[in-house]
Amino acid sequence: MEDNKTPEAEAEDTTQEAPEAAQDDAETFPRDYVEKLRKEAAEARVKAKRADDLARELFTAKVTATGRLADPSDLPFSDELLADSDALSAAITTLLDKKPHLASRTPRGDVGQGPTGGNSGDVDLAALLRAGA
């Protein structure tokens, strides 16, 4: 009697046999080699995490150095902005256009307070008393 299996049924039969055959033919590695590979992978993950942390710190420092934002964490981290200073400046400008309340409020330049550029070091008290007398 002929076997009238559909192609799907034949595929199921071959897939059921394949894992058993793969397990028999699977190549095994010594335990110390596998442990060494796992240790190297763990060290690589730690280094990658450290690199990501340093990249975020550098990004925050670059945003802070512009002095345009009150809080540098208002601009989300981006690798592309970290590499390109012009793009970083454009991103800050775009953010400030959308949300002007995030701008730094630190006064810059002459705001009319503090010592002036006059003769602050050459005060002659005796001359002042004579002028007033």
Rank of each mutant, 00 (worst) to 15 (best):
M1V: 11
D3N: 08
D3E: 09
K5R: 15
E8M: 13
A11K: 14
A11G: 03
A11F: 08
A18I: 10
A18V: 09
A18Y: 09
A18L: 14
P19A: 02
E20V: 14
E20A: 15
E20I: 14
A21G: 02
A22H: 04
D24C: 03
D24R: 15
P30E: 12
R31T: 06
D32H: 14
Y33E: 13
E35F: 04
K36G: 09
L37C: 09
R38E: 12
R38G: 06
K39L: 08
E40G: 00
E40C: 00
A41N: 06
A48L: 13
A48V: 04
K49Q: 04
K49M: 01
D52M: 13
L54S: 06
L54W: 01
A55P: 05
R56N: 03
L58N: 11
F59D: 05
F59P: 01
T60Q: 08
K62R: 15
K62P: 04
V63C: 01
T66R: 15
R68I: 01
R68S: 04
A70G: 09
S73P: 02
S73Q: 11
D74W: 00
L75A: 02
F77H: 13
E80H: 12
L81H: 13
L82F: 04
A83T: 15
S85C: 01
A87M: 14
L88A: 01
S89V: 02
A90G: 02
A91T: 06
A91S: 12
I92D: 08
L96A: 13
D97Y: 06
K98N: 06
P100D: 11
P100S: 11
H101Y: 12
L102D: 05
A103H: 09
S104V: 05
S104M: 03
T106Q: 13
T106N: 11
R108H: 14
G109N: 11
V111L: 07
G112T: 00
G114T: 08
G114Y: 09
P115V: 04
P115F: 05
T116I: 05
G117A: 10
G117S: 10
G118R: 12
N119D: 12
D122R: 14
V123R: 12
L125Y: 01
L125W: 00
L125N: 00
A126P: 00
A127V: 00
L128D: 08
R130C: 02
A131Q: 11
G132N: 13
G132R: 14
